[in-house]
Design a protein around this nucleic acid. Structure first.
Lengths: 146, 146
DNA sequence: GGGTAATAGTTGTTTTTGTAACTAACAAGG
DNA sequence: CCTTGTTAGTTACAAAAACAACTATTACCC
């Protein structure tokens, strides 16, 4: 005796967002995982460095709202695999400037291309106006000042 | 020297969706965690049983696209805490029918109320039309036939 | 019916996360 | 300078997720 209720799970935005996020991430996820053995936070860090150039772990964390612990680990692995180099800031020896190596640049360009293509694939389900509205609303919900 | 690129991380739908999902889940997450000591998959299972009544683990998995391992563990914990009861299907002894206990019902009603209120809070940032469009697009991306 | 495959659910093991405590370097006020 | 506080980043330990192997039961089909 399934009772119908007025508020279903599929009506709940956090649930919908989570499911949509998982679903839409699958293809790209398996790409960077198989191709570069990267984890989610690793490609994110790589992406930031590729997009904005040299920056510190803290900067990345603030921009992407990733916790410093995750960044620290992602940076360690990326560095170990020679995708990035780290150099201490001599004027403030607590921070490190991170930057891509040529291999890192190459991986970044490749991943950016893939991401753009997956993104297009996803967005193509909607009209141009809908798409823009969607992005705007998601930025709102994500707390990203656009 | 930050070089501007044509495809930024914040343009990438999977990234945006993930961030929006995380951000929007925070409040509800800490509610069910602190109030009932539940995990994400546990409240999801509870929600399904509350909404649709008795069903099997497999049914829940299909509807919510949650892997059977996660459901199995969520069910074990919910059952151990007396939120649900399990009974074997005598016509197919492989499956178990799950249903809420009175305590489970109570928790479900409470959580549903909370969810509805968080949902409203989130949706109120948009107009009614925008909101409906957002839900429709998210269902699309999530692969939920609406 | 007897063997093979499929299905429901569980358990074990390995990766990843989350949380919090920690080190090292700097800042600021007296 | 020296104590107290703050900041950047790391590490250790506990919690959770991913993945694969496993049990029990049913379905298929020759």
């Amino acid at each position: 005796m399934p009772e119908k209720d007025d508020f279903l799970l599929q009506d709940f935005l956090p649930f919908l967002l989570n499911r949509a996020a998982e679903e839409s991430s699958l293809a790209f996820q398996s790409y960077y995982k198989n191709r570069y053995g990267m984890l989610r936070n690793e490609w994110r860090v790589l992406f930031h460095l590729g997009t904005y150039g040299t920056m510190t772990a803290k900067d990345i964390g603030q921009r992407a709202k990733i916790h410093k612990t995750k960044i620290s680990r992602a940076v360690a692995k990326l560095s170990e695999r020679r995708f990035i180099t780290r150099s201490r800031d001599e004027s403030d020896r607590r921070s490190e400037h991170l930057q891509l190596t040529p291999a890192g640049e190459a991986a970044y360009r490749d991943l950016r291309g893939q991401a753009a293509s997956y993104d297009k694939q996803l967005a193509d389900r909607f009209s141009k106006e809908e798409e823009q509205l969607l992005r705007r609303m998601l930025r709102q919900l994500a707390g990203i000042e656009s």
